[in-house]
Amino acid sequence: MSDSTVEQTETETAAETEPETAAATPGQHVLHATRESYLDVVKGLQDEGYDMLVDLCAVDYLSHPGRVLPNGVEPERFEVVVNLLSRPLRKRVRVRVQVPDADPTLPSLFDLWPGTEAMEREAFDLMGIVFTDHPDLTRILMPEDWEGHPLRKDYGVGRVPVQFKAAPSTR
């Protein structure tokens, strides 16, 4: 991956940034990557000096179709959000990737930053995003045999109706 592609990606999104989009992400630098370019974009950013991957999480946009996206970015159900930080540049950048419901897979960033190991497992556990090439994609927070991915919007809160029962007699 050469630097030119990165610049291209950046200029592309920058060119397409509308005032509306900018307002939705106040004062923050956001890049949109496709699933195919995801690894390259992140790799390019790493080469550019973004030396820390601070956060990786997934969002389920099932019940929020009206979100603001720049032109050319096809909204999908899931979105994986990667927050990068550059110590030398003192800058943050956010990479957002659209992941379709039908095939929720994404390449793993484990080779670039081993620190994504737990974060990707968390996204898999709670949101059901499958990261290919991840060394150990197992549930991390929920029990091993849990069914479903709790943070998905079609997964209920799991509220237990509160029952008021008489306290056992003390006498």
């Binding site: 929920m142 709790p150 997964y155 209920g156 809160v157 799991g158 509220r159 237990v160 509160v162």
Partner: peptide, 13 residues
């Protein structure tokens, strides 16, 4: 005692 404010999938109530 009762699950408290977290009435959800993860906690024993």
């Amino acid at each position: 005692s009762s699950g408290g404010m977290f009435n959800n999938y993860a906690l024993v109530q």
